[in-house]
């Protein structure tokens, strides 16, 4: 029996991780190919792959993937550029926090997907509207989480900086920001994951391109294989971006692991 918190070797970790995927696909294949589930509702893995291949080679699905990635990344970067400095300010300066925190907490619960119809009225069905959905969905979350992280900076480190001659600005620049940089990177990784769900919602309505648009088109054709392929592609892209984020964080913040 494994002990609580006992680490496993890298090899075991990878094997175990992959075997879940294998089990999952096997169960899916068993249910569909074995005839336990109607093909109208759920395509089997082989059909899904064939449909996916067709999408990529014949229907320019790569372009859809590209545009969706662009929308997520674009809206997310916009949100991060605005939210991270605001979050740091909020965490550092309590009067600023008292000023904006109630509003941001309120805005955080506004569902980004419910803004889609409104944003179509405001910004049309162009790219701006897609970016804004992602932006609205991410910006308040990032602000609040960054503010909490910065607000929880170890007080003794701040005091040490003051006794070493730091000014108020110096404390923000040389203690609050570097101390929380890894945490902020982690917050961005998390929120980027959420941004993916908003982009698909934005593309389901009033869109002529993107993964979400392909999925809604496939629904009309009852092409469950294509729909599942689209969903799986999103999962894979998410996995890759997560992996990249983690690798970059490890590179940027070696002291975290030291």
């Amino acid at each position: 029996m494994p002990r609580p918190l006992e680490p496993v070797s890298q090899g075991t970790r990878v094997t175990l991780g992959i075997s879940f995927f294998v089990l999952f696909v096997a169960a899916w294949a068993f249910a569909t190919l074995g005839g336990f589930v109607s093909r109208t509702f759920l395509a089997d893995p082989i059909t899904m792959l064939q449909d996916g291949w067709l999408l990529l080679t014949r229907f320019g699905f790569l372009g859809d993937i590209g545009i969706t990635v662009w929308r997520v990344v674009g809206g997310f970067i916009l949100a991060a550029i605005i939210a991270v400095p605001l979050g740091i300010m909020m965490g550092a300066y309590k009067s600023f926090e008292a000023f904006v925190e109630p509003f941001v907490s309120f805005a955080r619960y506004l569902p980004a997907s419910a803004f889609v119809p409104l944003l179509i009225l405001w910004a049309g069905i162009g790219e701006m509207q897609k970016l804004l959905v992602i932006f609205i969905g991410s910006v308040f979350q990032i602000i609040l989480m960054v503010a909490v992280a910065v607000g929880n900076t170890r007080r003794d480190l701040v005091e040490a900086a003051y006794t070493l001659g730091s000014s108020d600005k110096g404390v923000v620049r040389r203690v609050l920001i570097p101390a929380n940089a890894p945490e902020i990177a982690e917050i961005l990784r998390l929120v980027l994951g959420w941004a993916w769900t908003y982009v698909i919602v934005a593309e389901l309505i009033g869109s002529s391109s993107g993964i979400g648009h392909m999925i809604i088109d496939s629904q009309a054709l009852l092409a469950t294989g294509q729909m599942i392929f689209g969903i799986i592609i999103i999962g894979i892209i998410g996995l890759i971006s997560d992996f990249l984020f983690k690798a970059v964080n490890r590179k940027l913040f070696p002291w975290r692991l030291a």
Binding site: D156, E159, A160, T163, L164, G165, S166, P178, A179, W255
Partner: peptide, 29 residues
């Protein structure tokens, strides 16, 4: 202020700075 140096009971080195950078902190400021 920098005219009074303080060493705390808890470990208050800046974890993101190396030993040399920690020692240089006040000089940089």
């Amino acid at each position: 202020g920098a005219d009074r140096g303080m060493v705390f009971q808890s470990y208050t080195l800046f974890p993101w700075l190396t030993i040399a950078e920690n020692i240089a902190y006040g000089l940089r400021e």
